[in-house]
Design a protein around this nucleic acid. Structure first.
Lengths: 152, 152
DNA sequence: GCTCTTTAATATGCATGCTGATTATTGGCA
DNA sequence: TGCCAATAATCAGCATGCATATTAAAGAGC
């Protein structure tokens, strides 16, 4: 079982756990009501207004079902607007509200600042190295994750 | 928003997502009914029989509440036994059953094999490097994750 | 021995995250 | 035009994952 601690899956789960905890703590300290997932969604919507939920899911690698709930919460908090697409009545187009925009502006510097906290034990060079490796792995693993592309 | 893709938190979430998907796929292909979390718990219980739930939670960095459900499912599937501790009637001591032991024996090689799949885009040297960095970060971040050590 | 605090586990509630099924709508094609 | 496969979103259901509160039991200190 000692080997468990050296397994990629286990270490990744642990790191994600730490990452989420750091995010939650910093946001709570700043008095901002946004989860990691909600922040990512809000950022994406702000950068490309009018996205549909499916497009958003693809952009940030989420499951569409999960995203439904996330979008619901953002909408009910008034951070985004969700309208029926004029071009496809099945689709919902997403827009950030002035309220959401303001919240995002407050959140952004906090999120930037906490990134280094996630990788607490590493020096600058190691952080850069880790980030590069993470990017490379996730880019390659893209096709393997079925999150945005569900197999029927 | 382009910056989002380079943020540690986002990349870690993505990698964890890939990791879980790879695990799920391989286990399903092998016809083994175990999630990543259940495998970790079962491994730990096998290596140290008689652990309490709290000890198990500390050992594999889980929240005790979450672990309650995991242990429930393993017990109801017959993979572990959960007895009241003879030394502390509040505590539950955990033991793997012959059934669970057999399942674990089948699962272990599958889990070992899928590790490399998680880090698909990396060569051997990069994998070693990434694992080393993950270990270092998680060791340092230990104190930050409130999972096993909840602040009151 | 009795109270007070601590501790192990559970209950409750919210937020992901995914699978499979369903509904509404669209667009292609005979 | 009418049917049919594909698509957008939702619903139901299960499994994490965490915060807060509660229950039961143990232990500390007087």
């Amino acid at each position: 079982m000692a080997e468990l601690y050296n397994m990629a899956g286990h270490l990744i789960r642990r790191l994600n756990q730490i990452s989420v905890a750091v995010f939650t703590d910093h946001m709570a300290a700043a008095g901002i009501d946004l989860t990691q997932v909600q922040f990512a969604a809000l950022s994406a919507i702000a950068s490309r207004p009018g996205m549909t939920q499916a497009e958003l899911a693809g952009a940030i690698a989420y499951d569409v079902t999960t995203l439904g709930g996330v979008v619901d919460r953002l909408a009910s908090k008034g951070n985004i607007r969700r309208d029926i697409s004029p071009r496809d009545r099945r689709a919902r187009v997403l827009f950030i509200t002035p309220d959401g925009d303001h919240l995002l502006a407050r959140a952004r510097p906090v999120v930037r600042a906490l990134q280094d906290d996630i990788l607490g034990g590493l020096d600058a060079e190691e952080r850069a190295q880790l980030l590069a490796l993470l990017r490379k792995t996730t880019d390659a693993g893209n096709s393997k994750s079925r999150a945005p592309l569900r197999t029927p």
